[in-house]
């Protein structure tokens, strides 16, 4: 696999992103690597500029709630599965770089223990202040690069 990292003056970090299998209506989803408040490991999150807010569901939401700031506010969230009950938290989410530097984002995140989908990095409270780039591989064996900067 070729390891030549792309370059962009505004980009402070690069990491490989992964394209998931087609899901349901044949949409491909983009998975990027991040760390969320209080957990030692790296997470996979869906990069979704179409999502109003970032969203954490299921047991991961319960784990994260212990380390995030509860804002005591309901947060409206509609998914393709319908409307879900979510609560607003302020938390640190770190975009993980394999080249350059990580980017720590103090973000507003919707936590919804009843939501069974993946961790979503959405626009409001997160992506709206982060510059991002997707540089897809141009041939088989190359790396798909995710670039970011504050």
């Amino acid at each position: 696999m070729k390891r030549t990292t792309p370059s962009a003056s505004w980009c402070s970090g690069w990491a490989e992103y992964i394209v998931d299998q087609p899901v349901n209506n044949h949409q491909l989803v983009v998975g990027v690597s991040c760390r969320i408040a209080g957990l030692p490991n790296i997470e996979h999150a869906l990069l979704d500029t179409g999502a109003q807010w970032s969203l954490v569901g299921g047991e991961l939401a319960e784990l994260m709630a212990e380390f995030a700031e509860d804002l005591d506010q309901p947060i409206p969230y509609s998914t393709r599965f319908g409307r879900i009950e979510a609560r607003a938290y302020r938390a640190s989410v770190v975009l993980v770089a394999s080249s350059g530097e990580d980017l720590e984002v103090e973000a507003t995140v919707a936590l919804a223990p009843d939501f069974r989908g993946p961790l979503v990095l959405g626009y409001r409270g997160f992506l709206e202040k982060v510059r991002v780039a997707l540089v897809p591989a141009t041939s088989q064996g190359e790396t798909d690069w995710f670039g970011f900067g504050g």
Binding site: A15, L71, R90, S98, G100, D102, L103, G125, V130
Partner: peptide, 24 residues
């Protein structure tokens, strides 16, 4: 109340890289 924090734009800062070949 909490609405102020909820609506506050996100802030960013750089940190040393924590990924690497293991991620790929």
């Amino acid at each position: 109340g909490g609405l102020g924090r909820m609506l506050a734009p996100p802030t960013t800062k750089s940190r040393p890289a924590s990924g690497g070949d293991h991620l790929e």
